[in-house]
Amino acid sequence: MTTAEIEAGQIDIREPTAARIIRFLGRTPVYLLLTFLGLLWLVPTIGLFFTSLLEPAVIGTTGWWEIFSAPSLGTLDNYREIFDNEAITSALVTTIWVSIGSTILPIALAALAAYAFAWLEFPGRDWLFLVVVALLVVPIQMALIPIFSLYNDLGLFDTILGLILFHTAFGLPFAIFLLRNFFIGIPRDLLEAARIDGASELRIFVRLILPLGLPAIASLAIFQFLWVWNDLLVALTFARDTQPITVAIFSQLRQFSGNIEIIAPAAFVSLAIPLVVFFAFQRYFVEGLLAGSVK
């Protein structure tokens, strides 16, 4: 038992039961309020989920809450339908490839660059680092038009590679910034020792820096993955037939009420993966967020 626990125990013993009940009752309104707010925050997502389960015949006219009084309205047909739908499945595959590529490539390149900025000596290093970080300000909108023209010339328009390269470039400044600040915290002695042992820089990078930098790399990977998976703007601009899932759903929005039996399940599938990632790596997610918000 720690001192704190013992102290807490003592306080509990000293406090009369009546006082504890009063204190609990005093908190009850807060509990009720939080429960209400929490449910309020869940309703929209739950609503989408149950809507996606409604029979195609009633989906455009019935509220999702009806499913509780008439469970027979529920069906998995909509999901079966979208997984038979070539346009939706190939869009999902595209999203998976783009997300994986756009997570690995920028982190690999950023880690290399961050190592150079942290531990290699060359003239103008800090200035160059400042310039790279300054590129954080450039909104994606500044690049859309020239890259659109460039992609048309290079044949990268409507390709997975084109999307990956764009996401990679715009993911780099923040990734380099974050990793460089992490790498610079690695004790100098470790590096010096490795260098004295005759390890090449590349070897030091692979054997020493990457393993030590894993926590930062993990947070970064989760963020980058979610960012790219959830992207609409870039995909909408550079993809036409090879479209990620967001664009595939977007093109159904034009006739919203008529297409709910596609939109609702597809939207739910598209947000289920980020949710799984989020729940699986919640700790990294929150830590990364706290680090990122100070950028």
């Binding site: 929490g38 989408l48 959830n230 967001t246 598209s270 967020l289």
Partner: peptide
């Protein structure tokens, strides 16, 4: 539980959130 409920929309894309609210 409350934290997770309120934080969850952060993981969802703004686009998917848009679809959700269009329905709402």
């Amino acid at each position: 539980a409350f934290k997770v409920a309120v934080f969850m929309p952060m993981a969802i894309s703004l686009f998917a959130a848009g679809v959700i609210w269009r329905l709402m």
